[in-house]
Computed example of a mutant assay.
Amino acid sequence: MGNRFPTETKRVTIADVAALAGVSKGTVSKFLGDGDYYIAEATRGRIAAAIAELDFQPNALARGLVRRRSQTVGVVVASVLNPLYPEMITGIDEVLGERGYTLIFGSTEGSSVKEADVIRSMQQRQVDGIVMASVTLQDAEVSQLVDAGLDVVLASRHMRRSDLVDAVIVDNEDGARQAVEHLIAHGHKRIGHLAGPQNVYPFEIRREVFERVMRQAGLPVNGLISVAESTRQESGAPAMAELLGADEPPTAVFVANDSLAIGAIEACAARGVRIPDDVAIVGFDNIWVAHLHGVQLTTVDSRAREIGRNAAHRLLDRIEARWNDGGHPHPVELRMLPTRLVRRGTCGCTPEPPDPLTGSSN
């Protein structure tokens, strides 16, 4: 796979230039910046000679780092249409505002090409770091961004490799286990799984847990899994139709996320399949739509706003460590928040009472 993002070809730093020129890093930063700073002509000559000798060629991102902190952070999500992301962005923006930063937003619409363009544009705008909540980026590409000197924190997703960048997630494994065991506790023997795209690690985990819990309970799995083409609501209906069209359709379905679950509910309505009488449904995310009176979706709470707040704090801590006199960055951390199953009507439970603060049962 070729590079999708600009990377440094030579790891020469401002400190290297400063040492060779016999000046401070701050003086080199002023020389490289576009501010109206006074630097003696002799000093300018030494810096220019050092830059030429070391072949120091900062890219757009590096130029932003040496000039000054932009006090801006990029936030990249997979789709602005996914109701999960506004809640997460709210959490991120709360923290950025508290700590004096502003937000630049980009949506990739599930396209790896657009994702690369969005990130490149943010680099050119010299953001101090990026919170990535998009889903197409792969391990090698994240490594490219880190090598280019960009601080990155993943939100609500993580990589197979845990040593690349910080990530803040919910416990996907325990959340999926709760969902499947809850349906088993309702007495269901044929439980299906409407899976998300399997190139997305959290969806892969949720499918693996589904299969494991089902087998541990002595229940069948073959023919009871349908993989959606995307994470969007419109992909839920055809995947659910595939499960309903089986010779022995499931009496319950664990759906990989709530957007797909809403599509699954639409597919049931189109076929006159009653929920939960004919088929029970449990989702994952607890988006705001889930608690509406006409939906009442049982789901796993993915704590989107808390993930956003945690990811923003982690990113800003990392950015500020970088700026503390060449401070050493924090070790990479995977922060995992616990999950909770929110019982509502689509599984056959009596909905939980609403939260007195939010008005929703979450």
Rank of each mutant, 00 (worst) to 15 (best):
T9V: 06
A19S: 13
A19I: 11
V28M: 12
S29E: 03
L32I: 15
G33E: 07
R44G: 10
A48T: 07
A48C: 04
A52I: 00
E53S: 13
L54W: 04
A62I: 11
A62C: 00
G64Q: 03
V66N: 03
R69I: 12
S70Q: 03
V75S: 01
V75Y: 06
V76N: 02
V77L: 15
V77G: 08
A78P: 08
S79V: 00
V80G: 04
L96S: 14
E98N: 09
F105M: 10
F105R: 09
E109A: 13
V113F: 07
V118F: 08
S121C: 01
S121G: 10
Q124D: 11
S134F: 06
V135I: 08
V135E: 01
T136A: 01
T136W: 01
T136P: 03
L137C: 02
D139S: 14
V146L: 12
A148F: 02
A148W: 00
G149L: 08
G149R: 01
L150M: 15
D151A: 14
A155P: 11
A155H: 04
M159G: 15
S162P: 00
V168S: 04
N172L: 11
A176S: 13
R177I: 13
R177D: 14
Q178S: 12
V180R: 14
G187S: 02
G187Q: 03
G187D: 08
H188N: 12
R190G: 04
I191S: 08
A195Y: 03
N199H: 14
N199E: 12
Y201W: 14
F203H: 13
F203G: 11
E204D: 10
I205P: 05
E208Y: 01
V209F: 02
F210V: 07
E211C: 03
V213Q: 12
M214P: 05
R215L: 14
A217G: 15
G218K: 08
V221H: 02
V221F: 07
V221N: 00
L224N: 06
I225N: 07
T231Y: 04
T231S: 09
R232I: 09
E234T: 03
G236T: 06
L244S: 05
G245H: 03
A246Y: 00
A246T: 14
A246Q: 14
D247L: 09
A256C: 04
N257L: 10
L260S: 11
I265K: 01
A267R: 10
A270R: 06
A270F: 02
A270S: 12
R271T: 06
V273N: 13
P276D: 09
A280D: 05
V282Q: 09
G283A: 04
G283P: 11
F284A: 11
I287N: 13
G294T: 08
G294R: 01
V300D: 06
D301F: 05
D301S: 07
I307Q: 12
R309I: 05
A311P: 00
A312W: 07
L315D: 02
L315C: 09
L315S: 03
D317Y: 06
R318A: 15
R318P: 05
I319A: 04
N324F: 04
N324K: 14
G327P: 00
H328C: 07
V332K: 00
L334Y: 04
L334D: 12
M336V: 15
P338S: 08
T339H: 05
T339S: 13
R340H: 10
L341V: 08
V342M: 13
V342Q: 13
V342C: 14
G348C: 10
T350F: 06
P351I: 10
P354K: 03
P356D: 01
S361F: 05
